[in-house]
């Protein structure tokens, strides 16, 4: 408002007083600045609070996705024991004496390197009327359950012996630098002319399953190494799927294995194929790479019953000598 005349002043002017400086340098302009800053901060806080509560969420409510590669499941793979050797002992197929030799062979090798063994018999697991040869899958799954801290599970079926006690599975074969040299990339999964090939650029860190193929029927499930972890459980449980068990695969679990590797990329991208000499050398005339001295394993894929005992006699003596010497 403007007045023609200024308002009358009081006749008793107040004595001139400097306002008490409560805060040094806290003048009106500063007060304004402080007020504005406060208002600004308040607005920001309000915005955050309001939008947070309206959209809530926030980054902590949605937990961050797990890292791209979870190598091992909870507790898996610390290497205690480093390797569990799984063997299914089928007394209907082999003689008692022979199986005793097999058991002794595994136990001695395991003791030598601080590994553990797990022996199963076909009746141990409910297969839901599937062929007894399927027993190996729940047996390996059982090994993962019993030894949750193991690094690897090595399945070696009863038709074979460990021949070279000096080779350590976890160091001489499965150590990444070593495995990198051994694994065969870009080869057909089912030889000779399978369309599906192992990955050409497979990194050794991604390998969860190491297995071999022989010259006659493709993949071999007689001797393979599986790394402990979530993938291993997924793989075994998928392999053991009831629809695979009930399907009339000609060679039961081996063909089911070939099937899942060729049809499912999450499995194919985790397997490495190695030479038979590494894990799964065959004896003479069995139609695969032939055993030579120094190989870890010799296998007799065709033998059964009493014949097996005589056929393998020479090898049993050989591994006993080698184990005694080492």
């Amino acid at each position: 408002m403007h007045f023609a005349l200024p308002p009358r002043k009081t006749s008793q002017p107040p004595p001139y007083l400097r306002p008490a400086a409560r805060l040094p340098g806290f003048r009106r302009t500063r007060a304004k600045l402080v007020a504005l800053t406060g208002l600004f901060l308040f607005t920001i806080l309000y915005l955050i609070a309001h939008l947070r509560s309206s959209s809530s969420s926030s980054s902590h409510a949605v937990p961050a996705p797990p890292p791209a590669r979870t190598r091992n499941g909870p507790g898996g793979g610390r290497g205690d024991p480093p390797v569990v050797i799984v063997t299914v002992l089928d007394e209907t197929k082999y003689t008692k004496e022979y199986l005793e030799a097999v058991r002794e062979n595994r136990v001695q090798y395991a003791e030598k390197h601080g590994y553990t063994t797990l022996f199963a018999t076909p009746g141990d697991y409910d297969l839901n009327n599937a062929p007894a040869s399927w027993t190996l899958v729940p047996a390996i799954r059982d090994a993962l359950t019993r030894y949750p801290n193991c690094a690897y599970v090595w399945h070696l079926d009863a038709a074979g012996f460990i021949m070279n006690p000096r080779l350590k599975l976890d160091e001489d074969i499965m150590r990444p630098a070593q495995l990198d040299k051994l694994m065969r990339r870009d080869v057909p999964v089912v030889p000779p002319e399978g369309v599906i090939k192992t990955l050409a650029h497979l990194r050794v860190e991604d390998v969860e399953l190491v297995l071999t193929q022989d010259g006659r029927e493709g993949l071999s499930a007689g001797s393979f190494v599986l790394r402990n972890g979530e993938w291993a459980k997924f793989f075994l449980e998928t392999w053991f799927g009831p629809l695979y068990r009930s399907y009339n695969f000609q060679k039961a679990e081996v063909h089911a294995l070939e099937h899942i590797i060729q049809w499912h990329s999450t499995i194919l991208s985790r397997i490495a194929l190695v030479d038979q000499h590494v894990l799964n050398a065959y004896n003479k005339g069995a139609g695969g790479q032939e055993y030579k001295d120094g190989d870890l394993v010799v296998r007799f894929p065709d033998c059964s019953g009493k014949a097996c005992e005589t056929e393998t006699q020479a090898f049993v003596q050989a591994w006993r000598r080698a184990f005694d010497a080492a």
Binding site: A68, R69, S246, A256, H264, S265
Partner: peptide, 23 residues
């Protein structure tokens, strides 16, 4: 569904010719 390796596996396994042929 959530982004995870598990989901990749599920989406991969979900369809399978052997299961389909039977069911």
């Amino acid at each position: 569904f959530r982004r995870s390796e598990w989901t990749d596996r599920l989406l991969d396994i979900w369809w399978d010719p052997v299961a389909y042929e039977q069911r």
